[in-house]
């Protein structure tokens, strides 16, 4: 109950009491009409009996076409079945009911008046349905319609920003593939999955040969271009479930779920061949790039995902030691030539 209901009424005489009641009534009406909230009162038959200025202004409808009319004929946009049930619960249970913009953007098609661009032409609304019982024991429902366009707008912006941040958090800015942190987290998960379900898991570690020379001979912009082009090329050679990340400066890593060693080697050889065949130019000069790749499959002995990285890393070292532009695996007897 608002304090307005309890406004002091002088008990000096009937005239004074009536005067007090009249003033209180006037105050209530003026407040209702100046509120920046829509007020709509319907009776048990869902006929509109009261509405305030906020709604008059925002709907552009005339009182004579609204009062004494069914709420559904005045506002044909309302979901009949849903709202009937909602209002019925208010009448029967004598409890308030609510409808938030987060579940339903708006109930009433009211234009919003915000000087901002939003996703919707309509005012986002929080609606409250309040039971009202009068002295005569008649039941009414007061519908309060709050304009929450701002809240909705900023919340949507915030969600977008958070999604963008979450993406930035996973992605390497230069190459647009996964960064080391996200890649490593993925490997941790894939390792756990492979162990739990007894599935195969392989790993390719890849390092660009003599990468420092690109930077030294042509400048860092050339190095960056090589990293971008090689990442883009490798991305096209992978399956959707493969997880490709930038491990360090010029070192990349690929997680291959449900893939055995021969499958991983086959892919590594294809990557090795395609990288060396890449025709890159920087400032009208041809730039030749090759990669060394180490491959490992998760075996019985590895106790952690880090151990798998070590295996692939050791193989990568061997590929480098044996002359670069090669694929190597410690789990395979022979050195693997470029395919």
């Amino acid at each position: 109950m608002s304090d307005i209901d309890k406004a002091p009424m002088p008990e000096k005489g009937i005239d004074q009491t009536l005067l007090g009641a009249r003033i209180t009534k006037q105050i209530n009406i003026q407040i209702a009409n100046q509120l920046n909230t829509g007020i709509l009162v319907v009776d048990a038959q869902l006929t509109i009996i009261v509405w305030n200025r906020f709604l008059q202004v925002h709907t552009g409808k005339k009182s004579e076409n609204v009062l004494e009319q069914s709420i559904f004929s005045v506002f044909p946009e309302l979901p009949v079945r849903w709202l009937s049930r909602k209002l019925n619960s208010v009448l029967q249970l004598n409890t308030p009911s609510f409808c938030s913009w987060e579940q339903r953007h708006h109930l009433f098609n009211l234009p919003h008046t915000r000087p901002i661009t939003t996703d919707s032409d309509f005012m986002a609304q929080n609606c409250t349905f309040l039971p009202i019982v009068t002295d005569t024991n008649d039941s009414y429902i007061c519908i309060l319609i709050e304009d929450v366009t701002d809240v909705c707008h900023y919340q949507t912006q915030l969600k977008k920003a958070l999604a963008e941040l979450a993406k930035i958090n996973r992605i390497d800015g230069l190459t647009q593939i996964y960064n080391r942190r996200h890649w490593q987290k993925s490997l941790e998960q894939e390792y756990a999955k492979a162990r739990r379900h007894d599935k195969k898991l392989s790993l390719i570690m890849l390092d660009l040969d003599h990468f420092k020379l690109f930077n030294d001979n042509y400048g860092h912009q050339c190095g960056d271009m090589v990293l971008i082009e090689v990442s883009a090329l490798i991305s096209t050679l992978l399956r959707v479930e493969d997880i490709f990340g930038r491990y360090g400066g010029e070192e990349f890593a690929i997680i291959l779920p449900e893939t055995d060693l021969s499958g991983a080697i086959e892919l590594a050889q294809r990557i090795c061949g395609r990288v060396s065949a890449l025709a890159l130019t920087y400032k009208e000069q041809n730039v030749k790039v090759t990669a060394s790749l180490g491959v490992a499959q998760l075996g019985e002995q590895e106790q952690s995902y880090e151990a798998l990285i070590s295996q692939a890393d050791a193989a990568l070292y061997q590929a480098k030691a044996q002359g670069r532009n090669k694929v190597f695996s410690n789990q395979c007897s022979s050195t693997l030539a470029v395919g």
Binding site: R81, R85, L93, N94, T95, P96, F98, S100, Q103, R104
Partner: peptide, 28 residues
């Protein structure tokens, strides 16, 4: 329980609805 049609409401809205009914009827 509430007699909604499957496509009537999102799951979130259903949970919110029944919760509000339970809370307010009880606390009233």
């Amino acid at each position: 329980l509430l007699g909604y049609e499957p496509d009537d409401l999102s799951k979130d809205e259903q949970v919110i609805d029944i919760s509000s009914i339970l809370t307010t009827t009880f606390l009233n």
